[in-house]
Write a protein that binds this DNA or RNA. Structure first.
Lengths: 187, 187
DNA sequence: TTGCACATGTAAAATGTTACATGATTAT
DNA sequence: ATAATCATGTAACATTTTACATGTGCAA
């Protein structure tokens, strides 16, 4: 389980409530680790029981109270130990690749539906890439980054490289699918 | 759940026993969908109960009996229906990215350990890429591919593009990590 | 005789997803 | 009024991972 480690990193970068963490997992952290608020609350509970984080009750005017979680020295030591442990090979699960190989068992009309679906999927990735590039301009424009910014930036560059690779590959996929059924009338 | 669909595609390409499927998920299919034999046997059971596959008992000399599974017309129809359904956004979970951002909370000595780990991880990906390229030369060297080969090939090209992107990014990561601790004595 | 490849499973634990549940404030 | 944001959880279900379990034949 790396969700606990992802949460520790995020809390070290900036203490937060469960709700704020969930927001981050929808944005910046979600680039490389997704989680829902249900998972986050469960893991926060465990981390607090093990004294790896501590929560401070914060009363807010005109907003519900929240618990602001911070990493303890114990938690920080646990994270650092984990950093040096072997990285496991990623468990690849690419649904679209399954569909593409499955298209061999479909007919031309069915494959046309798949082409439409791939185009929609491609548009989603264009949007994600645009968001990454906007974030890069916003957060990493100026010079002289500290260690934290340099590391956040290299992770973001990884996301950008991934999205560009996906877009190029999807163009390859679309060309391949269209080559299978060439005699499509223009009207 | 796409594992059932990945299994249907694989069985349509070539009927197989559970054991043989597990082997394929270690190799070619594992490029885009991983599964262990425990998962595979469980899903085969379900698929058989729903009449989407049928098993034929095969007695083998000097080897244990096996069940050879094939996709039924019902199973094929179910797969084709799924092909046209929306592709869900992938749930990204990249452990290494978490570690890299976590490195901001480690010291130079600890980061040196992470560098070593990234180098090992990079070597693994070099091996995977070499395997893909060898497979490409072996399976897709000659001309005039049919639909099935063309689709398998474009998926493999996706794997190749992914590995190349990862290797380039890991070089970026290594350069970034080394820039953080520049005054390392050569002896 | 030790280990690997073949062959198929069960069980328990950990994780992840989806749905349900509540309640205040702010903006339209 | 209605929806969105803030804020925190529980419960049920699905899926994945890890460990356990068994047995044959062949090669070093």
């Amino acid at each position: 389980m790396s969700l606990e480690h992802a949460i520790l990193v995020s809390l070290l970068e900036q203490p937060a409530s469960g709700y704020e963490l969930a927001r981050r997992f929808d944005r910046s952290i979600g680039r490389f680790w997704t989680a829902t608020h249900q998972q986050i609350y469960r893991v926060l509970k465990q981390l607090a029981e093990d004294d790896r984080i501590t929560g401070e009750e914060i009363g807010q005017e005109s907003l519900p109270d929240k618990k602001l979680w911070s990493v303890t020295p114990t938690g920080r030591a646990a994270l650092v130990g984990w950093l040096h442990a072997p990285v496991r090979p990623e468990a690849v699960r690419h649904e679209l690749a399954v569909k593409i190989r499955g298209a061999a068992f479909d007919d031309a009309a069915g494959r046309a539906l798949l082409v439409a679906e791939v185009e929609r999927y491609r548009a989603d990735h264009e949007t994600v890439l645009a968001g990454y590039l906007a974030g890069e301009r916003r957060d990493f424009g100026s010079a002289a980054p500290d260690a934290r910014a340099a590391l956040q930036h290299v992770v973001l560059r990884g996301g950008i490289a991934y999205e560009r690779m996906v877009l190029a590959w999807l163009d390859d996929v679309l060309a391949t699918l269209r080559d299978l059924d060439p005699e499509r009338p223009p009207a």
